[in-house]
Structure formats: C-alpha cells, structure tokens
C-alpha cells in the first residue's frame, strides 16, 4: 500500500511543480514527473510479490510471474511521453527566441 501512496505523493509533487513554478523548463520537468508517477503506478499494479520477469527462456518454467500487460502499456505510454516532451521542449526554445524569457508571468500576450 505504501508504494501506491508514494506514487500519489510523486504525482502531487509533479502537479505542484506544473501549477506553481514560473519557469517554463521547470513546468516541463514537472510534467515529466507526473508522467513517471503514473507510469510507475501502472507498473506496480501488475507486480506480484516474488514475481519474476515474464520472459520465456529455454528449459525454464516460470511459475510466479508479474503481469506483463502493464509493462507493455507503460512502454507505449513512455514513448508517448517522449514525443510530448520533445514537442514541448521545441516549443519552449521557440518561445525563448520570441520573448527572450522563460518566465511565464512575462509571457502573456494572450488575454481575455
């Protein structure tokens, strides 16, 4: 149970980082923390006590293995996270070119 709560704690740290920080780069890092908290949680969901990696090998029988499906799904989620992060970093660099700052309180041309 405690590991799930730690995941939640990590999630909250990321959320705090996204909501509260002013620097664009820190916001992106916060987003990464959120993603990893969710991924970690998803992997833990499939874990069994003393479970082994679900890999078929020659002349071996695995009796107690962890659930392989969450691992496959998390791999997909990581790839998606990579794409989003790369895109946002590219946008952040372009924003820095245009505005000359990473401070979101100064990047406010859109209002209303």
């Amino acid at each position: 149970m405690s590991e799930y709560l730690l995941c939640l704690f990590l999630f909250c740290i990321g959320l705090y980082c996204v909501l509260r920080k002013r620097n664009i780069i820190k916001i992106i890092i916060g987003l990464g923390i959120i993603e990893y908290a969710v991924n970690l949680f998803f992997v833990l969901v499939g874990y069994r006590i003393h479970g082994r990696a679900p890999i078929l090998a020659k002349e071996q029988k695995i009796l107690n293995m962890v659930d392989p499906l969450p691992q496959a799904l998390v791999l997909t989620a990581i790839v998606i996270g990579l794409a989003v992060t790369a895109l946002i970093v590219a946008i952040a660099i372009r924003i820095y070119e245009k505005y000359g700052t990473f401070d979101i309180t100064k990047i406010r041309r859109l209002r209303g």
Partner: peptide
Amino acid sequence: KVGVGLFTIFVVLVLFKILK
C-alpha cells in the same frame, strides 16, 4: 522509425541553439 526519429529530434533541438 525510433532511431532516426530520436536522432532528428536531437539534431533539430541543437540546430535551434546554433541558429541563435
């Protein structure tokens, strides 16, 4: 796809800096 894609992402991000 992944190998070339990651390399392209890296190159593009570096090119931004060089242009500046």
